[in-house]
Amino acid sequence: MSEWIRFWVVAVLLCIGVICYAVEVVGIFRFGYVLNRMHASGIGDTMGLLFIVLSLMIASGLNLNTLKILLLIIFMWLTSPTSTHFLSMVEMRTNPHLDRYVSRRKAP
């Protein structure tokens, strides 16, 4: 019986993770500009990965793989904002038509 309880917990967490990824993909198509699409892609990078990996941790029990999966979460949560920041920097530096999408304040 306890195995089935664990199975349903894993199933719910996995479904939440997959739904997060589906929302991310829908958002990629619904938004119209790169800096808006980054907002959508942040959902999957944080919550989708967290829930799927959490379900795997519960399914596999406590062993060395759990520690490695935890390391994966920590690494992805550190690197995903960094790469998004770099991408937005590329967009700000190289798009000549930036004023159509972004309203920038003049420097005083």
Binding site: Y21, R37, S41, G44, M76, S80
Partner: peptide
């Protein structure tokens, strides 16, 4: 950005 997202999906 899309390549980055594909990378996350592959990791999962």
């Amino acid at each position: 950005l899309c390549i980055n997202m594909i990378g996350t999906l592959v990791i999962c």
